[in-house]
Nucleic acid binder design. Structure first.
Lengths: 339, 339
DNA sequence: CGGCGGTGATAATTCGTATTAGCACCTTGA
DNA sequence: TCAAGGTGCTAATACGAATTATCACCGCCG
């Protein structure tokens, strides 16, 4: 079936079929342009040799000549498989893989990027980004310089998650947080809540900032009172205490893992949820956590975002910027405000 | 910082530095052979241009010339991210990714292989296997023809999971099932169990076959009675009934999902586990299942297998065949036989 | 003065495929 | 008989980096 030694090249096929390498290439690519004519019997002869030898074109050489690959790069700032945030990224990858498969593309995971153990950078000394036709960027934060450079080098890419301009507009597929947060605030307000709090950083990257913005705007719109309760470096008990002191009745928690923590703390302090305090979760957990309650909040369309990113890359023109709607999750941690 | 138009080549760098392309290549690869001499100031000049332009070598061209990539292919017969078996494959990928990162390799997932919607094959019409330096094969079953061809074309690869010869020995990193199953049988026998059953296919691929073999041998060794209870197309109730009828006291269940099913059936029928029937699970669930009990059995060293496969590929000589030991899991579904 | 060894670079070729330009042959029509 | 036009194929080159084989130059020694 197959030869033992060196791998077959088109040259070998050409020799075996008694034609030129050019002809083999033309037959292989099934070129039927009127410019290119191959006699049916010649074509058949070449095809027969190809079949008999099981020849397949070297994708590397092909790529060099053709300038495309059907390979999509996937760059993740956090490691994809290991680490705590694996669960968070998994659905994105699911969408990416699904769509890539449909499009007939392979996926190149740039795992080597962080070999140095430091922060991952796209452009390290022998960057392989250019091996891919296009790239998907995944990660909570993305390096601005990397973005600028991708733009400058005109490497087609799409960020998953909205990104601020980096010298120029950045193509992205994001989750549309502000309306989702607004919808939650509206519902809380409709249930009589007047003292609301945003619990979490609310800054540091586009996605928390967007949620915070949605929160602020909505609070103003409904004429409620909105405060900001940071969590970094604090215990859930501490956060809960602050919420109680401020007589907050609805907490909009950026990170579900924190929501769960606060609920545990509440259970310990005899604070009833949602009786005394409603909890609204703004997204999916990025830290591993056992979520045994049915949090009210919204679903980030992660899988759809992955799919869409790939679609845009393969379709590929311009600077697409899309925000996909989040779906509200009813849950059981929102109740009418106790007055 | 970076040029706007076409991507930079070594030729461009050469022009900018006033040297030849060869010199750029030599500097870039930091060649210090006594054969190759570059004046320090020339080297510095070239390096400066490279720094200023942010040039990185095209990995495709590099691969064509150099014949290596530092790219590892990962071929999965089942889709990796989506599908039910995702949880099962995840740990392997984790190990693979970890080790690839350490080795400074990128991972190419051959997702396009199954584009046709049919069974995945490695060698489809324009196979990209050869884009990678080497491949990891993952999947319950692996196509024999594919294996034979990989061997024939001398493409370096390692299968995760033991594989029978395919015309020639197949390199693999597998789980050492027979001793693990034997150890479980020994423990059961030590607790007085005499009528044991292997519940599952016990055939169809190497891994169930290995477990079955381990079971048979162990049963003979301890002088017990061993039967085989298939599960395909049967309800857990049905299987449980057969076990009861045969007065089996210890069931060795190939697939944890089935073990869970049988335990639910047992709860419904008033059969106590492990009081009336001990359940031993032979591995990790390949079907999604909520495992709320602590099954006695063993742990397949999936992550380690992934790591080791990559190590062997990168080290890369010969036909490695390794079986990694499974770790016994104490659990709570094995109890002394009731006589 | 002329050859020799050491130094610093480069021209040419290679990898395997795709594409462009063009060549050789055949028929046809005038 | 020869240009025109069509047919079937191929030589040459591009793609971008790595490697091999040289080459030009300088100083020194005989």
């Amino acid at each position: 079936m197959t030869s033992p030694g060196r791998r077959l090249t088109q040259q070998d096929i050409a020799r075996l079929a008694g034609v030129s390498q050019t002809t083999v290439s033309l037959v292989l690519n099934n070129r039927t342009d009127p410019e290119v004519r191959i006699a049916p019997e010649t074509r058949e002869r070449v095809l027969r040799v190809i079949r008999e030898t099981g020849y397949v074109a070297d994708p590397v050489a092909r790529r060099l000549a053709e300038r495309r690959n059907r390979i999509l790069g996937v760059f993740t700032y956090e490691a994809v498989f290991p680490t705590a945030s694996a669960d968070f990224y998994h659905p994105f990858l699911l969408g990416i893989e699904e769509c890539a498969e449909e499009m007939g593309c392979d996926l190149l995971l740039f795992t080597s990027a962080g070999a140095a153990g430091e922060r991952r950078r796209i452009f390290n000394e022998d960057s392989r980004v250019r091996l891919a036709d296009a790239c998907v960027l995944l990660g909570r934060t993305v390096d601005r310089d990397d973005l600028a450079r991708l733009l400058a080098e005109r490497i087609p890419f799409v960020s998953i998650g909205r990104r601020d301009d980096a010298g120029a507009p950045v193509p992205y597929v994001g989750a549309d947080y502000p309306p989702a947060v607004r919808a939650l605030v509206d519902r809380a307000a409709g249930l009589g809540h007047r003292r609301l709090a945003y619990v979490g950083a609310g800054a540091g990257a586009e996605s928390p900032a967007d949620r915070m913005r949605g929160f602020r705007e909505a609070v103003v719109a409904v004429g409620a009172e909105g405060s900001h309760v940071p969590v970094t470096g604090r215990s859930p008990e501490d956060v809960l205490a602050e919420l109680s002191a401020a007589r907050v009745t609805a907490a909009f928690v950026e990170e579900p893992a924190d929501a769960v923590g606060i609920m545990h703390a509440a259970a310990g302090r005899g604070v009833s949820i949602p009786g005394d305090l409603s909890i609204l979760a703004l997204g999916a957990p990025t830290r591993p956590v056992q979520v045994d309650v049915d949090l009210t909040g919204f679903r980030i369309p992660r899988r759809e975002m992955g799919r869409r990113a790939v679609e845009l890359l393969v379709g590929g023109e311009g600077t697409p910027q899309e925000l996909l709607p989040c779906e509200l999750v009813e849950g059981s941690t929102l109740a009418p405000a106790r007055n």
